[in-house]
């Protein structure tokens, strides 16, 4: 069975259908299946590793005076669902859709 480590996926380039750069993988979203195991749901893709790595967007709320700054740093953040992944290459992950069709909301993942 082929395997991959999360750390090797984090930071990998992501390009869209036309080869345009979307960003780098900031995080991997997983979803629990009925049998209790976790399966891949998609990638959080962004351009500012700083804001991405700290984990803002999960339980971490940006502190008051930095709201704007962090929102600005995360303005390129997109969610790439597994369904829209065309190919996971050694260097680059290709999406099967255009970058304009990707939304920022990874939390819209069906539960």
């Amino acid at each position: 069975m082929p395997t991959v480590t999360a750390s090797s996926l984090l930071g990998r380039e992501v390009v869209d259908r036309s080869g345009e750069r979307v960003g780098a993988v900031h995080d991997i979203v997983v979803r629990r299946r009925d049998d209790g195991g976790y399966e891949m749901a998609g990638f959080v893709v962004g351009r500012s590793a700083l804001a991405g790595r700290f984990g803002y967007g999960a339980t971490l709320a940006p502190p008051t005076p930095l709201h704007g700054l962090l929102a600005w740093l995360r303005r390129h953040e997109r969610y790439l669902p597994w369904e829209d992944v065309a190919d996971i290459g050694e260097e680059v992950i290709r999406a099967s859709v255009a970058s304009a069709d990707l939304t920022p909301a990874w939390r819209a993942e069906p539960r």
Binding site: A6, L10, H26, D27, I28, V29, V30, R31, R32, Y38, A41, V44, R53, G55, A58, L60, W106, R107, E109, R111
Partner: peptide, 8 residues
């Protein structure tokens, strides 16, 4: 959790 971010 039902959905989570691995990195976070």
């Amino acid at each position: 959790p039902r959905v989570m971010r691995l990195g976070f």
